[in-house]
């Protein structure tokens, strides 16, 4: 179903005729725009692209893409997408999910899709709130958060989605945010090009129920001092004049330092390709939440055979060993006898 010519498309080709229905000002719009702008650049084909989502504000996403798409049930998008990606390794399957969908009701499926390394590009819209159900705390909400369901403040310790994905040994893990289109597009492109499970956490503003949750790190003024860009092969450094940096201390933890004090040469040089996820994990622990300097970019990008390819190769092996399936022979494969 693929021919070799790279299709020339525009953003319009990737937009469905459905009216986008998110609240005005919602961060979801900019993520949709980034993806729609990116698709023509990727040379992807609409008919070979599928967006699968669960339930939540972000999960309406497939309806706005002029591709194949399934808006499934709450939390189960990675499971449904696994079946699709395994049955059809020729497709490019995206999963669109949110913090409640992916980490609460569907937490199990996300972990298993990551550990199996199913060929999926997973975009997790993290707005730290339940938007569609009108404002309850989510598994990424900060402790003490006052919402309709937590009038005295939330008692739950939140997940860090990047740490969680690294714990499941995901082969690609990245973070970006909805106010930087260029960074989003670049991160999505990297995720798209990764064969296997790729998870991108996107800090996304819900301006209705959790407005400004990421302002402390993503507003134009705060970015230089609060976002730590991770770039492969480069020292991990930030601050308006690059005055801050990251080193690994004696316990293997990443810590923020003044470059003046440790010297430029002693800064951690980011390596996405380290097999052991420990280093990437320690980077993910630099910030507890979006209130202190927080790394963005690609934490980890390692090669590992993807699940669908492995499944496919077992089929090919079995057919080579036993010959292609012969139904008549199968039905007679047990002990048989003949009644004359």
């Amino acid at each position: 179903m693929t021919d070799l010519a790279t299709p020339v498309t525009t953003r319009k080709d990737w937009s469905s005729d459905q009216e986008v229905r998110w609240c005005p000002g919602c961060g979801d719009y900019s993520i949709l725009t980034a993806v729609q702008l990116l698709m023509p650049e990727l040379g992807a084909k609409r008919e070979d692209t599928v967006f699968v989502s669960g339930i939540g504000c972000s999960s309406r996403f497939p309806y706005y893409m002029n591709t194949y798409g399934v808006h499934s049930i709450h939390g189960r998008a990675p499971a449904l997408a696994t079946g699709l990606a395994v049955a059809r390794p020729d497709l490019h399957v995206w999963v669109i999910t949110g913090d409640g969908d992916a980490l609460s009701i569907g937490g199990n499926h996300l972990l298993h899709a990551l550990r199996r390394n199913v060929n999926l590009t997973i975009i997790l819209f993290n707005n730290q709130i339940y938007g569609l159900t009108k404002g309850q705390y989510s598994p990424t909400s900060e402790p003490g958060k006052v919402t309709k369901s937590t009038p005295l403040g939330s008692l739950d310790h939140p997940y860090n989605p990047v740490s969680l994905a690294l714990g499941a040994e995901a082969s690609f893990v990245a973070r970006t945010h909805d106010l930087d289109r260029k960074h989003m597009m670049e991160t999505f492109r990297r995720a798209y090009e990764h064969r296997g499970a790729a998870l991108v956490e996107v800090y996304q503003n819900c301006n209705v129920f959790n407005d400004g949750a990421f302002d402390a790190i993503t507003s134009k003024d705060n970015r230089p001092s609060m976002l730590i860009p991770l770039e492969h092969g480069k020292p991990v450094r930030f601050g308006a004049n690059g005055e801050k940096g990251v080193v690994i201390d004696g316990h293997g933890s990443a810590v923020i330092v003044d470059v003046d004090q440790v010297g430029e040469d002693n800064l951690l040089v980011h390596d996405e390709t380290v097999g052991d996820p420990t280093l990437a994990f320690s980077l993910s622990r630099l910030s507890e939440g979006p209130n202190s300097p927080t790394p963005i970019g690609v934490f980890r990008d390692v090669e590992r055979p993807d699940y669908g390819t492995l499944v496919q190769s077992q089929l090919v092996d079995a057919a080579a060993r036993k010959g292609p399936g012969d139904l008549g022979a199968l039905l007679r494969s047990g002990t048989t006898w003949t009644v004359a």
């Binding site: 699968v52 399934v70 499934s72 049930i73 189960r76 499971a79 449904l80 997408a81 696994t82 079946g83 699709l84 990606a85 395994v86 049955a87 059809r88 497709l91 199990n108 499926h109 972990l111 298993h112 499944v311 077992q314 089929l315 092996d317 079995a318 057919a319 060993r321 036993k322 010959g323 292609p324 399936g325 139904l327 199968l330």
Partner: peptide, 28 residues
């Protein structure tokens, strides 16, 4: 019987089992 092109997926739970089967059905 993988030589019949049968893909068997031992899922993480019952819900994933049926969801994956449905995803595969969507794919034909």
């Amino acid at each position: 019987h993988k030589n019949f092109g049968v893909r068997t997926f031992q899922a993480e739970d019952e819900i994933a089992g049926v969801s994956a089967a449905l995803g595969a059905a969507y794919g034909g």
